[in-house]
Amino acid sequence: MSADVTSAAELKGCRVVLCAADDVPAGRMLRVVVPEAGPLLVANVDGTFHVTADTCTHAEASLSEGDLEGRTVVCPVHWAEFDLATGAALCFPATRALAVHPAAVEDGQVVAYIRGSREG
């Protein structure tokens, strides 16, 4: 496994451990601040973990305080919506996509592979 991680890190970006998978039950979200990428959003959609930037691209709001509706996160301040898998802004007032980071569960921990170019 460790060998895979090394090669994955080269491909995907910098490997960062964010939290235990158990910290984010299905249908929930968690805000994690890491030095490599600033505040990140960890969302558990029916067992699949998504990691994106946590700050709404419209105004300065933490998406982790919003609502998770299926694969869509809804900003708590002006109710912009984003697709967690693609980062796409789904409705007004957001127009810019959210940064999305490849994520996986490894040894019970949620990890993300941060690439600088994809930081939101």
């Binding site: 105004a59 300065e60 708590p76 301040v77």
Partner: peptide, 17 residues
């Protein structure tokens, strides 16, 4: 740009800093 949720609570403000 002050925003309010369905409970009437202030959810956010423009230039929040």
């Amino acid at each position: 740009g002050w925003s309010f949720d369905l409970d009437g609570r202030l959810a956010g403000v423009h230039e929040s800093a």
